[in-house]
């Protein structure tokens, strides 16, 4: 399901507010201007990129502060559904987001980014991993995410799609857990997002997976229904999806556009 239409209306609303605030009469529309602090629960694969977007947002809307709660998407959804005082939710897959939407805790989500998988190895690649099929070798120690989190279901789909049988030694609860085990050189390979490989820089080496054999995941973002600061929450959601600067930052960090 595409949610762009509703989002466009949002954008119109937010832009109108923004234009009226910044453009002409600061006092006139001040009640609806984004201001104050919001807490954003975001998938751990957004750990590096979201603070950069938040800084741009805070600059764009002075007086706003964005705080983060990073973690595995499923855990974040559970927290929101249990009533966590969060204003915005951004997950690494649509099914996880729908659990919050269907429970009536998140507003209409907008898809704002797309990601694909990669194999990350410690810099030396001492196990000599060159393709996905190497991960089925018994001497290659592999880490993956738990199936309950998006990076885990993506890894499972990836193995199935390529017909390889991989027995990970650990099922981490978010993708940064996998990346950490690779960077610590405790595993020979880990299934992570391409953006994680980019974020890790020289701390890991990687093998790309051909697009026709890879799997993708799309990232939805939504305002939390019970948000104490719905104006700023909605403004942030619209900003991430529609602003040129947020989308530019996402591209720079390796995220593809989902539309």
């Amino acid at each position: 399901m595409r949610l762009g239409r509703v989002g466009a209306i949002w954008l119109a609303a937010v832009t109108t507010v923004a234009v009226s605030v910044i453009g002409t009469e600061p006092g006139a529309a001040a009640t609806a201007a984004p201001v104050g602090t919001i807490t954003v629960s975001a998938a751990s694969s957004l750990t590096d990129v979201f603070p950069v977007i938040a800084a741009a947002f805070e600059k764009r809307f002075p007086g706003t502060t964005v705080r983060f709660n990073f973690g595995g998407s499923s855990a974040l959804v559970e927290q929101v559904n249990a009533g966590a005082p969060v204003d915005v939710l951004a997950t690494a897959s649509e099914p996880t987001m729908w659990k919050a939407v269907n429970a009536g805790h998140a507003g209409r989500p907008l898809l704002f980014a797309k990601n694909t998988m990669a194999i990350a190895m410690p810099p030396g690649n001492s196990a000599g991993v060159t393709s996905l099929s190497d991960l089925s070798r018994t001497d290659v120690i592999t880490a993956a995410c738990a199936v309950a989190v998006p990076c885990g279901s993506a890894a499972r789909d990836l193995f199935a799609r390529n017909g390889v049988t991989v027995r990970p030694v650990t099922f981490e609860l978010d993708v940064r857990g996998v990346l950490g085990k690779v960077m610590a050189d405790e595993v020979d390979a880990g299934i992570v997002y391409v953006t994680d490989v980019r974020a890790a820089g020289s701390a890991v080496t990687s093998v790309a997976i051909p697009a026709d054999r890879n799997v993708t995941t799309t990232y939805p973002i939504a305002a939390v229904i019970s948000s104490a600061n719905p104006v700023t929450a909605k403004a942030f959601v619209a900003y991430v999806r529609y602003s040129r600067s947020a989308q530019g930052i996402l591209r720079a960090y390796g995220f593809a556009r989902p539309w």
Binding site: G72, S74, E78, A146, A148, V149, V169, T170, F171, L173
Partner: peptide, 19 residues
């Protein structure tokens, strides 16, 4: 790490199930 049957003890199973 966290692997059922090998290293996934009760507290880890509880936390994993929460997901």
């Amino acid at each position: 790490g966290n692997l059922p049957g090998v290293t996934q003890t009760m507290p880890l199973a509880v936390y994993s199930a929460l997901e």
